[in-house]
Structure formats: structure tokens, C-alpha cells
Amino acid sequence: MNTPPLTIVIADDDEDDRQLFSEALDELKLKTSVYTVKDGVELMDYLSKEETPMPYLLFLDLNMPRKNGLQCLKEIRQSERLKEIVVTIYSTSSSEKDIEETFQSGANGYLKKPNNFGMLKKALHKIVMYAHVYRDPPFNKANFLFKV
């Protein structure tokens, strides 16, 4: 099995969250490589570069400085090159408003940041394993939510 590792990008302004996210993915041993960015502007710069390989999965925090997650999501869905990326929202908020809005804007999943490292690992495992399912529309809200 010499397939290249799956690229997973995480955009989050909280350093702790990025660290915990990377650690959780490492511990899953799923042959993935994590690329982290600190905010929306950095994310869009990274994605728009020619040499950037298309990420397998993108985790997007909503509340970020400079450019928030929802703006990034809309830009990605409008871009001819990027619109196929599977995007999972990764946020502290569990408000119905946020979930509804991101779903309407084209998010493939929604993961509320858990309070427990074990739960985070479980949720990430599930999302990475099933990501390809959500790549192809029609996806629906029943499999949209990953609140663990």
C-alpha cells in the first residue's frame, strides 16, 4: 500500500484546538497528513495556490479573525476549482442557526468541538472513513451532522 497520505486541512485560530486536532488524527494512524492554517485569509491563500494538492477533507472553524469560516465556505463553493472539496464545519457553537446556515451554504458536515479527547478521536475517525460518501451529492441533513 504505497498510496500517498490523504491531505486533511484544518483552519482554526485556536492553537490548542489545532494541536489537539493533529494529535487526535496522528493517534488514529489513518495515513493522513494534516496541514493547519490560522485563519480564513491564510486558508484561501493556501488553497488558491496552483501547487497545492486538493485536500481530501477540510475542517473549518466558524469563528476566526480576518475571514470567518462561513465566508470561506461560500468562496470555496463558488470557486470552479475548489467547489468539490468535502468541508466539515468544526465549531464550538451548537446553535441551530449556525448549523442551518452552513448547511445552506454547502457544508458537507458539522462537528461540534467535543470536550473530551476520546470523543474527538472517535468523531474524526468516522468522518475520515466516510468522507467520500459526502463528496457526491445529494447529501442530506441526516448524514450531515457529526455531533458526537
Partner: peptide, 20 residues
């Protein structure tokens, strides 16, 4: 209350790391 949750969650996360 929303922003207060973020550091609190970090505390809980790292606590769970220690427990693990």
C-alpha cells in the same frame, strides 16, 4: 458565554489527555 466556552473546552480537553 460563547467565547468563555473555548478556553474551558481546552481545559477539559487537556484534562482528558492527562487522564488518558
Amino acid at each position: 458565554s460563547h467565547d468563555l466556552q473555548e478556553p474551558l473546552r481546552s481545559i477539559q480537553m487537556f484534562a482528558s489527555r492527562i487522564v488518558g
